[in-house]
Design a binder for these strands. Structure first.
Length: 410
RNA sequence: CGGGGCGUAGCGCAGCCUGGUAGCGUACAUGCAUGGGGUGCAUGGGGUCGUGAGUUCGAAUCUCACCGUCCCGACCA
């Protein structure tokens, strides 16, 4: 991508209403733009990050046997009345009416819709287990939206729902999802921890939260240095020797849950078992806050100069910052060649061909958090070298041209 | 919803206390200079001062109401 053909809009100063570092940097780097409280436009640069996270999630979910669907954002009240949640869910649910004065909500979650789909589609134990997922905008009318996309009202979520003939099958899929989640957050490159969470419906080890560790995290998580035990603060209260537990803060980016038959009972989602009798499907659900991951990743990876994106989710992997691109035909030729060859090698490259001053380009590249920067100029041409700067390194280094690819593997 | 801020140019702010024709920085446009870390100088365009009502000869400024937004607490990926 050439910068002159893309849209980049960065700011030196953070807006006054952004408190959290990740929020400030997301605005300053032009990733998002606020429309209203808890409502954000994903600008081109930010959308690239979001899409990369989406695709990592998609790959791992597919790998784990889940199948992608897309459900409506707007849902009829009748479904929610079946489970009783039309009244129970509370003011977090945004209720709306259509022209015929029928009641709907903007979906805060999709258990009702998926259960409705499945009760009509799946009839036999032979069709189970089944795990459907989607990546879609949710709306929750939060009491207090804050911290940018960290706690927005409209947010992108991956939600999956699995259906089973028996408990054993649920536990199997649950463990597949547990592994998939570990793979996803590892692939993205985050420091995270899976913790036991409260599970009202089933109890035991039926629910885990995935937290990105960060000082600014809204949740307190508790762990035992001498064992694998880690839990959210609610569960930890019941731990036998809770005096020895340590605490740290985390940002909840994922939650997996063994639901049981709560929704299938209420909505009569049954299947015919091997003996020919109807039986309620056993369910699990698995959520990831996709848009929140962007904020969490930045919260965990930044410095005074800006964002430091993990390469897996950076809007671009490499930025070329030529000096004299529009003045020196030699520089232009060398830069264009490098640009084309990196693209041919499969890299996501941004060529800053805007003819800006070097300082502006460098500062912007750092703010955006692009992991690899390559600078060419008449000076580097004379030496027949590239100047390479890793985003997390303190200074640039001169490298041999054919050594560049080695540096791009982070 | 309770407590506390803040609404003046795209963004960051001053002006308000003590009413009198709206300003600075940045961004944007143009020109000249500059050309390896948000460069310098000059010129220019851009504002229903959140909305409404009131007080006053006169309101960004004083009063009231409303709206928006942010922070602290109770819900959540």
């Amino acid at each position: 991508m050439k910068a002159s053909k893309f849209y980049i809009s960065t700011f030196k100063e953070a807006p006054a209403d952004a408190e959290l570092v990740s929020h400030q940097l997301m605005i300053r780097a032009g990733l998002i733009k606020k429309l209203g409280s808890g409502l954000y436009t994903w600008m081109p640069m930010g959308l690239r990050v979001l899409k990369k996270i989406e695709n990592i999630i998609r790959e791992e979910m597919n790998q784990a046997g889940a199948i992608e669907i897309l459900m409506p954002a707007i849902q009829p009240a009748e479904l929610w009345k079946e489970t009783g949640r039309w009244d129970l869910f509370g003011p977090q649910m945004l209720k709306i009416s259509d022209r015929h004065d029928r009641s709907f909500c903007f979906g805060p979650t999709h258990e009702e819709v998926i259960t409705d789909v499945v009760r009509n589609e799946l009839n036999s134990y032979k069709q189970l287990p089944m795990n459907f997922y989607q990546i879609q905008m949710k709306f929750r009318d939060e009491i207090r939206p804050r911290f940018g996309v960290m706690r927005a009202r409209e947010f992108l979520m991956k939600d999956a729902y699995s259906f089973h003939a028996d408990m054993e099958s649920l536990k199997h899929t649950y463990s597949l999802m547990f592994q998939a989640y570990n793979a996803i957050f590892t692939k993205i490159g985050l420091t995270f921890r899976a913790v036991q969470a409260d599970n009202g419906a089933i109890g035991g080890d039926g629910s885990h939260e995935f937290h990105v560790l960060a000082e600014s995290g809204e949740d307190e998580i508790v762990y035992d240095e001498n064992s694998d035990f880690a839990a959210n603060i609610e569960v930890a209260k019941n731990h036998p020797n809770k005096e020895n537990l340590k605490t740290c803060r985390g940002i909840e980016v994922g939650h997996i849950f063994q639901l049981g038959t709560k929704y299938s009972d209420a909505m009569k989602a049954t299947f015919i078992d091997e003996s020919g009798k109807p039986s309620p499907m056993i369910m699990g659900c698995y959520g990831i806050g996709v848009s929140r991951i962007v904020a969490a990743a930045i919260e965990q990876n930044h410095d005074d100069n800006g964002i430091i994106f993990p390469q897996s989710i950076s809007p671009f992997e490499v930025i070329i910052t030529p000096i004299g691109y529009d003045k020196s035909p030699l520089v232009k030729k060398a830069v264009d060649n490098l640009y084309q060859s990196l693209i041919a090698d499969g890299y996501d490259v941004l060529l800053d061909d805007r003819g800006l001053r070097p300082g502006v380009m460098f500062n912007e590249a750092e703010l955006l958090g692009i992991p690899h920067r390559v600078t060419l100029s008449e000076k580097t041409l004379v030496e027949n070298k590239y100047e390479y700067k890793n985003r997390s390194a303190s200074a640039a280094v001169m490298i041999a041209n054919d050594d560049l690819l080695n540096h791009l593997v982070s």
